[in-house]
Structures are given as structure tokens and as C-alpha cells.
Nucleic acid binder design. Structure first.
Length: 300
DNA sequence: AGGTCGGCCTGGCAGC
DNA sequence: TGCTGCCAGGCCGACC
């Protein structure tokens, strides 16, 4: 499941290799990929243009093209973006790996120099759409929030986002409009690192909790990046290789195993429809913060 | 208004 | 063995 570390890994690998390349032709093989736009429409706007940059915003990849157009792509659950070098097969990948499998090919960018950039996606949730580059910020406004690794995410920013919110911390972290790029895996990891219970209301955090969460989010994402992303299911980097982060998870998908910190058994619950792994021993459940009126009630 | 939930998809796997 | 049915979850829109 590509989240920020996986998408950023792909971006970092691809950017230096495709910047300046000319897309001879884009071929869209699955009309779902561009829906509701017609594939032809997108093909004609992309074909013949030079790639100026590959950026990332949250879990979106932004392919900036000459002439002020940006092709925005999202891998969703199972998408892969793989660069095939001249005349090459996907190296180091089994034939049945999704990235190497033509069955799942949704779009191909012919770079004209023998190389090909491929978007494949078994589950077809992935998408792409075009925007004038100047309109990208407006499109993301209110939907894609603070970039966690940009320096804009501070303890104060977390406190401001969480203030008054009764939603569980897990839902709070999954909300892309708040902090961008955190998905199910890294939300669990961040909460474990912060020693916070996923069901604690976001607004119940005090400063020390917000600080712990800040460290947890950044620590979990950095660890993911260092591992080259996590390969659960279909994730492959731009070379068609699997990341190693899945072996580094501290709680995610470790139900029944001992907590690496306190030894208690890791449990799985469902929070807003998503599998959530946590340690009941050391992840503290915060109570709803009493509203300050006069002296307030003593907390037991 | 803010939170929750179903739909979109398909592969993989548990269970019969 | 082969089938059924459930699970995975990012994001959006419908709903409460």
C-alpha cells in the first residue's frame, strides 16, 4: 500500500532519470485510469511534451510538463510506476510480480529513447488527471494538508489540527486534509511510537502527547523512507524492486506478537473500517479532555 | 459540521 | 481440488 514513504521513494528514484526526457507518446490502456476524462484527451495533451519535474504532494505524484500542464497520478492501493530501461525487462522481479505483468498495464509513456515508464495496477484504483500547473494548489486546497517532512509540521500545528476533535487518533492521522501522506500502516506505527492509543480522541491530547505524536509520525515516515518503502502486497519501487520496510514494522500486522517495548500481546481492532494494530500495554488511552470552566472536574 | 460507512476493484487465501 | 466468500484499504460521496 503506497503511502508517503513509498511514493517518495518512487519519486526520488525516478526524478533524476526522467527530468528533461520527452514523452514521445502516452498510451492509455485502461479508460478507468483517466476517468472521467477520455483517454485520448489525456494522451494528446501529454504526448510530445518534455518532463520538467516529478513532484509529490501527499500520496500524489505530480508530473510537470512543459507548457504549464501537470499530470497528477495516484497509485491508490496497488499501483506501480516502473521505468524500463532501453530494451530491458523488469530486472530482479519474478514474472508473476505485478509490475512485470502486462495484464495489469494501465498506461505507458514512451520516452522515445528506448525507455518506457509504465503504470500498472492490478486493482485499477489508480488514477490520473491533468491540470494546468497553476491550478494544482487550488485542487489540493482543503484536501491535502501539511507535508509531514517539510518542516511545516510542528507540534503546534498538530495541536491546532487536533483541537476540539473527537475523532479517534487513528482517524485523525488518516485524514489527508490534516497531515498528508499517512496511511494505515504508518498511522499504526506512529501511534505505537508515540505510545498513544488509536481510539483516543484527537482533541484529548495535551502538549506532551502532541509532541510524542509529532515524533512518532516523523520517526515512522523516516524509517519507511530509509527502508525504501514497505512491500506489502503489490508495492514495488520504480525499479520493480520490493522495499524492506515491511520487515521493520513494530506493530502493524503483528497481531498476537509481543510488543517490542513492553512485551504485551499486540492486538488488532477495527477503527473507522480499518485494521488497526496496537499494544494495549503501553499505548495509553486518553480520556476526553474536560472543558475548562471554572475549576473543572477533578480527573480520576 | 463533523464523523462514519459503502462503493470502487481484483487477487489471494481460508474454509468447506 | 474447486468453489465461495471475505479481506485488503485510499479516497470520495452519501448519509446521519
Amino acid at each position: 500500500m503506497p503511502e508517503l514513504p513509498e511514493v517518495e521513494t518512487i519519486r526520488r528514484q525516478l526524478e533524476p532519470r526522467i527530468r528533461g526526457a520527452r514523452i514521445e507518446r502516452l498510451e492509455v490502456l485502461d479508460p478507468r485510469w483517466t476517468r472521467p476524462a477520455e483517454p485520448r484527451e489525456v494522451e494528446s495533451q501529454v504526448s510530445g511534451r518534455t518532463i520538467e519535474a516529478l513532484r509529490r504532494r501527499g500520496k500524489y505524484l505530480l508530473l510537470d510538463l512543459e507548457g504549464g500542464t501537470t499530470l497528477i497520478m495516484h497509485l491508490r492501493m496497488t499501483g506501480n510506476l516502473i521505468l524500463l530501461e532501453e530494451g530491458a525487462q523488469v530486472v530482479a522481479v519474478d514474472e508473476d510480480e505485478p509490475g512485470a505483468d502486462d495484464r495489469y498495464l494501465r498506461a505507458r509513456f514512451d520516452l522515445g529513447d528506448g525507455r518506457e515508464l509504465r503504470f500498472s495496477d492490478p486493482r485499477r484504483f489508480g488514477e490520473a488527471f491533468l491540470l494546468p500547473s497553476a491550478g494544482v494548489d487550488a485542487r489540493f486546497e482543503g484536501r491535502v494538508g501539511i507535508e509531514p517532512l517539510s518542516g511545516e509540521l510542528t507540534v503546534e500545528a498538530i495541536e491546532a489540527l487536533a483541537a476540539g476533535r473527537r475523532a479517534p487518533l487513528k482517524s485523525f492521522l488518516l485524514d489527508q486534509a490534516g497531515i498528508a501522506g499517512v496511511g494505515n500502516i504508518y498511522a499504526d506505527e506512529a501511534l505505537w511510537r508515540a505510545e498513544l492509543h488509536p481510539l483516543s480522541p484527537a482533541g484529548s491530547m495535551r502538549s506532551e502527547h502532541a509532541e510524542a505524536l509529532w515524533e512518532g509520525v516523523i520517526g515512522a515516515l523516516r524509517a519507511g523512507l530509509e527502508g525504501g518503502g514497505a512491500s506489502i502486497g503489490d508495492y514495488l519501487d520504480s525499479r520493480g524492486e520490493r522495499g524492506s520496510m515491511q520487515d521493520e514494522f513494530l506493530v502493524h500486522r503483528r497481531e498476537g506478537e509481543p510488543c517490542p517495548r513492553c512485551g504485551q500481546e499486540i492486538r488488532r481492532i477495527v477503527v473507522s473500517g480499518r485494521s488497526t494494530y496496537f499494544c494495549p500495554g503501553c499505548q495509553v488511552r486518553l480520556r476526553r479532555r474536560p472543558r475548562r470552566k471554572g475549576r473543572g472536574r477533578p480527573v480520576s
